[in-house]
């Protein structure tokens, strides 16, 4: 069906390309540069890469200082540590002064797999999106990752970009447009809209195929920026289809589903259901087993769609 490709490798390679053009780009790692693939940049530009060791809070502070001195900084580690471990440093030193720091995290969500709950995170989007000045981007595949890295580095100000550990299906083309704050239409439909992000976009496309057999035409939207949310597309979709399901590999409490719910609730209420990780910690397991156990399959999306359509 789809080819599988690594977002981390796409990120690492793109950083090297950008590093050749942009001499002010500095990259920071925290003893996980071989995992997040900032090691590619280290190899190419050792003088502009700093390994901070297992000291994420210090890394964020150093990033702030570099940015305050005119550098564009990419700081990278696992999502759980990038957002949780050094939340206050991100909030106070980076976001408050709106510095030019790009936090690019891998191993987000539950697809981390065997490492278990301590290394998984269903809260990172929540933590980042609530901080003023912080923008949150979730590229859907390796191709979009390349474009997203370029985009957040070209834009001024703090960004949080989220990637998974596992390879993900390539569902976009090189030629597709990517713009921060702009959702993309993956599939037209008239009966319901599935607004999804990250790995759940491909799950939504699979669900849409299953729904087609039931005679339900689902629109599928890839919401690759969580903040600022593309409310224009969200409202257009709600108006056109009259029912919405959100899907994310993140806690249902304060992620994409919450942003969409607020937008629709205030401006154009329609039946809505959120598919995502329930209010619980994860566990060890193969990533595909975890997707089933934690309700992140096409089947879960299909039942949510059936529910909202009943409420129409």
């Amino acid at each position: 069906m789809w080819e599988m490709a690594s977002q981390r490798i796409a990120f690492g390679k793109t950083l090297v390309e950008i590093g050749k053009e942009n001499k002010d780009l500095v990259v920071l790692g925290a003893d996980l540069s071989s995992s997040t693939k900032t090691s590619f940049f280290e190899k190419e530009f050792p003088e502009r890469f700093f390994n901070c060791g297992i000291a994420e809070a210090n890394m964020m502070g150093v990033a702030a200082g570099l940015a305050a001195s005119g550098k564009t900084v990419v700081a990278s580690t696992f999502a759980v540590f990038a957002t949780g471990r050094c939340y206050d440093q991100v909030r106070q030193s980076i976001a408050y002064p709106a510095l030019n720091v790009k936090i690019v995290a891998s191993h987000a969500g539950i697809t981390v797999g065997g490492d278990g709950a301590s290394h998984q995170t269903a809260e990172d989007i929540a933590l980042m999106k609530v901080i003023p000045n912080m923008k949150v981007v979730v590229p859907v595949d390796a191709i979009e990752t390349k474009k997203a890295v370029r985009a957040i580095i070209e834009e001024e100000g703090p960004y949080y970009m989220r990637m998974g550990r596992s390879d993900v299906p390539t569902i976009t083309d090189e030629g597709d447009n990517f713009k921060i704050g702009k959702a993309s239409m993956m599939r037209e439909g008239s009966d319901v809209t599935i607004i999804a992000t990250g790995i759940m976009v491909s799950q939504a496309l699979k669900a849409a195929e299953m729904l087609r057999l039931e005679g339900i035409e689902a629109m599928v939207v890839n919401m690759s920026t969580i903040k600022p949310l593309d409310s224009t597309t969200t409202l257009m979709a709600a108006k056109k289809t009259g029912a919405v399901v959100t899907a994310e590999e993140h806690s249902v409490i304060f992620g994409l589903g919450n942003s969409v719910a607020i937008t629709l609730g205030e401006k154009y209420p329609v039946p809505l259901k959120r598919v995502g990780i329930p209010d619980t910690f994860g566990e060890s397991g193969e990533w595909n087993e975890l997707m089933i156990k934690y309700g992140l399959t096409p089947d879960d999306i299909v039942s949510a769609v059936e529910d909202v359509i009943k409420q129409k």
Binding site: G116, A117, S118, S284, G285
Partner: peptide
Amino acid sequence: LRKIGSRLQGHPD
């Protein structure tokens, strides 16, 4: 170890 449903999580619980 590390299998789904196991008490032996990847990191101690």
